[in-house]
């Protein structure tokens, strides 16, 4: 019993089985990410406020180029096999996998930065103004409002927001991960030392201020629970990251077993790399859409 067209293409379709299989799988993946992108659009269109400029564009751009480079190298690795050059295949495949882990490393760093960055909302207007002044001096509220206007692109609106609706952004001393008003209450923490972000347009960090937890209405790191923006950002990029990781592991497996396969079934091996490469291009393509909608728009 032999399943036909596992290696050679079927004449009328021009495809071998796995190549058709991966295209079908990718069609399904398009619908999966399509669903998530639709969710992004619906949430953003329906949102009162949608933040902007929360992520570092240089880092994102760098990562975009890393992934694009990996797409080039994965094609080169397949082409090397087709030319019969196993050594050059190994080189290009190693580069591809290195790019993948480079991408994931940078992404992890970005995640870490977000997980230790906090927004605080205060229980009422008077309290809020008190801490705004403590953080930025006399005209503290105006500075915090400037951040607010920038973050949510409110230049052209006349809407006003009460001070307690406006967040103070910064770090908590000791850089804890994932703290929130709920975890602080659970741990019976009475106060935190908060290091506010620099004034708008400046790089000088103001002095840390002491905030009793009882003054806080809400405190959240930049995690999914922070807002729908971060929720969709983390969900899509994490799912994309899992695809990168999965792809890298499979390609890594191909790399490790290359000698054996090359000896046993060179054509089938090249097909495997081609199919893996198609998946890899798809993962890149998702990022090409993700980068503008999450970093730039």
């Amino acid at each position: 019993m032999e399943i036909p067209y596992t290696v050679k293409p079927r004449p009328d379709t021009g495809l071998y089985n796995a190549k058709l299989g991966i295209w079908l799988f990718l069609a399904s993946e398009v619908m999966l990410f399509g669903g998530l992108f639709s969710a992004y659009i619906l949430l953003r269109v329906g949102a009162d406020l949608w933040p902007h400029g929360m992520l570092s564009i240089p880092i994102g751009t760098f990562n975009t180029f890393v992934l694009i480079a990996s797409s080039v190298t994965v094609v080169m690795s397949w082409a090397s096999l087709k030319l019969g050059k196993l050594a050059s295949f190994k080189l290009y495949m190693t580069l591809t996998i290195a790019c993948a882990f480079g991408f994931l490393g940078v992404k992890s760093y970005e995640y870490y930065v977000k997980f230790t960055h906090y927004d605080v909302w205060f229980k009422d207007d008077a309290t809020a103004q008190k801490y705004f002044t403590a953080a930025y001096g006399e005209k503290g509220e105006a500075d915090v409002r400037k951040h607010f206007v920038e973050r949510f692109h409110l230049h052209n609106t006349k809407a006003t927001y009460d001070p307690h609706e406006i967040q103070l952004a910064g770090h908590i001393q000791g850089n804890p991960l994932f703290a929130s008003h709920k975890t602080l209450a659970k741990a019976k923490t009475e106060k935190i030392m908060f290091e506010p972000d620099p004034k708008f347009g400046s790089h000088d960090h103001p002095k840390a201020i002491e905030i009793p937890v009882s003054d806080v209405k809400r405190l959240s790191a930049y995690v999914p629970a922070h807002s729908t923006y971060f929720a969709i950002y983390f969900t899509i990029t994490a799912l994309h990251g899992l695809h990168v990781l999965g792809g890298a592991l499979v390609l890594g497996y191909f790399l490790v077993t290359a000698d054996k396969w090359w000896k046993k079934a060179p054509e089938q091996f090249a097909n495997r790399i081609e199919v893996g490469g198609l998946f890899w291009h798809f993962v890149d393509l998702v990022w090409i859409f993700l980068f503008p909608i999450i970093y730039l728009l």
Binding site: M31, L32, L43, P224, T228, A231, T235, L239
Partner: peptide, 24 residues
């Protein structure tokens, strides 16, 4: 193939709501 993935997307979003406290 094509109709199930959006539900998977929805399932993931609801799971994040449930486990990580987001508000999709």
């Amino acid at each position: 193939l094509l109709a199930f993935p959006p539900l998977e997307a929805a399932g993931i979003l609801q799971l994040v709501d449930k486990v990580f406290g987001s508000s999709f």
